[in-house]
Design a protein around this nucleic acid. Structure first.
Lengths: 316, 316
DNA sequence: TTGTATGCGTTATCAA
DNA sequence: TTGATAACGCATACAA
């Protein structure tokens, strides 16, 4: 059994409320007693009981991140950034790889202060039962949730990508991405691409990466390239898809490539390309800032959309 | 504020201790009152307060997984398996991507029932302060921790790999893996390979993958292959490294490949190869089983080594 | 400046 | 079968 405030109080010959105050540096305690108590606490390896604290203060200092698909690099980067941003605000972040509704339910039982969810479509949506009991914020591209979402506007990103390629003189563009899916982050790219190309009178093709991983993209392209040739202008739907695509790229043939995701990993690539997307750090900051505000104000379930707009950058 | 037992009690006109019993299906309550209470609880969307529970029962039902490097496929697979195994035992798993000692400290404050840590070397080791306060189990290849570890014996795996390649008639073997590292899971492979080849009078080379990712391996091999030719017999240090290696493989030239990690993702590869390692599911089962036992018995910090022995399998 | 008392939501023991 | 009550560890308003 871990050491409690009472144990320290007994060891110091003071009352346990004094210990409580001393350990949180309250001005209501003498410097001298404080330092005695703190030293003793350290010595006895005191570990505060968050359950007890949480019971009385209604705060756990913990945020739950719901992340069922722990496997894509770009998302890993975002999670790391979110972790850092939360830390800055004094929160501890914890991840669940369970199904969203299950994870959120557990988070509620644990009385976490807030929940972040990576929105990928219907199966990742949280019910009212959850969202009216704890501040939730999503990351994605949807606009019609009953809780706030940081929207990274993939549609704008696609348009910027197409515009750039047109500016570079291309009249025919390929899009490599996951086509057969309900993940709204993917479908919005696919559909916007199609429509915008039509609008701009650009010839286009949709090439299925058959998944979101580098491996699936590589395999899918192997098949594709048996019968067809890839275009000179290509938009890749994510960092991982870009990596899968780059394998098949003969460096001698110059291509214009625009890759989704704006993460530092691109700096390590020796092929020049454009990237488009909101930087992971920006996304993280906004997620944390808005969640923090809603925790402070006790707001749950406002269906606000926080729009973030993608940047297009050239990587030499 | 979420609904409490008292709220339900008031709504049902019974005492809250009756509600408490009813909701955990105690035989001390009539079926009738039970069903009334349960229905009301459901209706009011009652969410038990784990903090309060934990305070009195000294159990949180939650296990913390320490996993600072959320980026390798093989590890992702293991985490998923561990999550499932814990669920079977009634636990909820939660992941921290913070530094091990920080994460463990927070887990302690949250009074989690147990901690699992992926051991990769000195920086991933937990101090006595932690391990004497909560049951901890590690996954790795070390044998000298002050807490239990599920050891997957990479040294045996390497030997099995070399033996197989010798049996297939090879006299010269390449090892592709991370060479310049303190990660003990990697160094043990490197060192055993070298020594065992010497012992068996086999010519060998160590090829640096310059990291553990597919991308780094691919790049490293690009450089390597400019001046050298890869051997006919190759051992790859992990799933991701194998994937990086396969890019450079001309399918026409037959090679004998042994890849580390025993995960289902290999089924999707169309190149025949051997895999060696303890299946992720087995690792997960043992981690959870032993942790669960130590939680039950209140054991902390026994320095037991649970040895799991790798299997070599041929994938057509 | 320090100590006492109350209550947070729950479980468990005991009394009714 | 049900209800009252103490206790878990802590924060805090209040009394000393």
């Amino acid at each position: 059994m871990p050491v409690t405030l009472k144990d320290i109080a007994r060891a110091c010959g003071v009352s346990y409320s004094t210990v409580s105050k001393a350990l949180k540096d309250s001005p209501l305690v003498t410097q001298q007693t404080k330092s005695i108590i703190k030293q003793k606490a350290e010595e006895m390896n005191y570990i505060p009981n968050n359950s007890a604290r949480s019971l009385v203060s209604n705060k756990s200092g913990t945020i739950g991140l719901i992340w069922p698909a722990v496997d894509r690099i770009a998302v890993t980067t975002l999670a790391t950034q979110v972790n850092a941003a939360l830390q800055k605000h004094g929160y501890f972040m914890v991840v669940s790889i369970d199904k969203p509704e299950v994870a959120a339910g557990k988070f509620l039982e644990l009385r976490f202060d807030g929940v972040i969810v990576f929105d990928e479509g219907p199966e990742t949506r949280l019910s009212n039962k959850i969202t009216k009991n704890v501040p939730v914020i999503a990351y994605g591209v949807s606009k019609e949730l009953h809780y706030p979402i940081v929207n990274v506007n993939h549609d704008t990103a696609i348009k910027k990508a197409v515009d750039q390629l047109i500016k570079d003189g291309h009249h025919s563009i390929d899009y490599v991405g996951e086509l057969d899916t309900d993940d709204i982050r993917q479908t919005v790219k696919r559909d916007t691409f199609k429509e915008y190309c039509k609008e701009k009178n650009i010839k286009y093709r949709l090439i299925d990466s058959e998944g979101l991983s580098e491996a699936s993209t590589r395999e899918a392209l192997t098949k594709f390239l048996k019968n067809e040739k890839i275009n000179d202008a290509v938009i890749c739907g994510s960092y991982d898809i870009t990596m899968g695509f780059l394998h098949h790229l003969d460096k001698k043939e110059p291509k214009s490539i625009v890759s989704f995701d704006n993460i530092k990993q691109f700096d390590a690539i020796d092929i020049p390309l454009y990237t488009v997307g909101v930087p992971a750090e920006t996304i993280a900051e906004h997620l944390v800032m808005h969640l923090h505000e809603n925790i402070q104000s006790g707001n749950t379930a406002s269906s606000k959309v926080i729009n973030l707009y993608p940047e297009l950058t050239y990587h030499q």
